[in-house]
Design a protein around this nucleic acid. Structure first.
Ligand code: FES
Ligand code: FES
Lengths: 162, 162
DNA sequence: TAATCGTCGATTAAATTAATCCATGATTAA
DNA sequence: TTAATCATGGATTAATTTAATCGACGATTA
């Protein structure tokens, strides 16, 4: 049970897009090289981010990606959802459907409408996580990095991408 | 990204162990049959629950499983951890280790000690979920079911297992 | 002593994830 | 106008994980 590495690739890569000017963009090649990632695989990641409306693409030479929304409107959760899709973490296979009293037709219309308490708890738990993740935005992340990272590192990265 | 079905199997199966007397136990065969599950696979599930100290086993004919702890001391989270292990949901592969400035030895001892902000946020988010899941116990679940399930259904299940 | 039940390890099958390859189309610069 | 650069998408492959089965073993009871 774990998130795919795409999530780590996505979040780390997006960091470098936060401060790029409206007109500019950064290509997959540079992002992959700087971070030591597979170029082709990272392009799949950005395909998903683009489809979710988080980034927009600039085709052709000198092209690349830029943020499509304000960094304060892009949350960690948005990114995760773009990568992992909308299915809940807990997979309820509705095992009650095969319970003895249903197989035996003892109780024909039982349970069909009510949601299983166990599933409900799991959904609520996931919601807790989602709320937290939704409260952390790329803008917040940028501020945090500015505070905690040596400025020469930030400058070096910025220099690499221009 | 999802929990294995074992979690659903485990939580649903444990329901039927909550009210069994200290001396008694329920076998895999009955649990599997009642719920329409694979007998051998469910036994793997209970192997994990036993290893985690959630249930204890009674070998031999007329044997089976019973709870090893008070239902109010067994939380949803305990069960999930017994099944899924202790690894966090978000897999941080430490991609910073391969960043350009590290490969180029520009900054030899960079980052080794600091924990990545992104990873930190993910860990905190998971903690939110964990807290919620830890607050829901089998004892609570039992009460909830008593309130929301038709009593004849509960009785029928109880009858099946005795 | 034979049938029942949990335990463990090996095995298999299916599904998912990680990653690569290739073909295509847009864009810019020579 | 052409060649190089870049995103896009589909197909493919390899590795890993999950789901499920099988068979052998030891404990227990009737
Ligand atoms: S039926 Fe799926 S969790 Fe209860
Ligand atoms: S290095 Fe793994 S999340 Fe930052």
């Amino acid at each position: 049970m774990k998130y795919s590495v795409m999530v780590e690739y996505a979040l780390h890569s997006l960091v470098y897009l936060i401060d790029v000017p409206e007109e500019d963009s950064i290509g997959i090649k540079k992002l992959a090289e700087f971070q030591g990632l597979s170029e082709t695989y990272l392009s799949k990641v950005f395909g998903k981010l683009a489809k979710a409306g988080i980034v927009s693409s600039v085709p052709g030479v000198k092209g690349g990606y830029r943020l499509q929304k304000n960094p304060k409107d892009i949350s960690f959760w948005d990114v995760i959802q773009a990568i992992e899709g909308h299915k809940p973490i807990f997979q309820c296979k509705n095992i009650r459907e095969n319970f003895a009293y249903r197989r035996d037709k003892t109780c024909d219309s039982c349970d069909v409408h009510s949601i299983c308490t166990i599933n409900k708890v799991m959904l609520e738990a996931e919601q807790q996580m989602r709320d937290y993740l939704s409260s952390k935005t790329l803008a917040w992340l940028n501020e945090d990095l500015k505070d905690h990272l040596p400025s020469e590192r930030i400058e070096a990265a910025k220099a690499f991408f221009t």
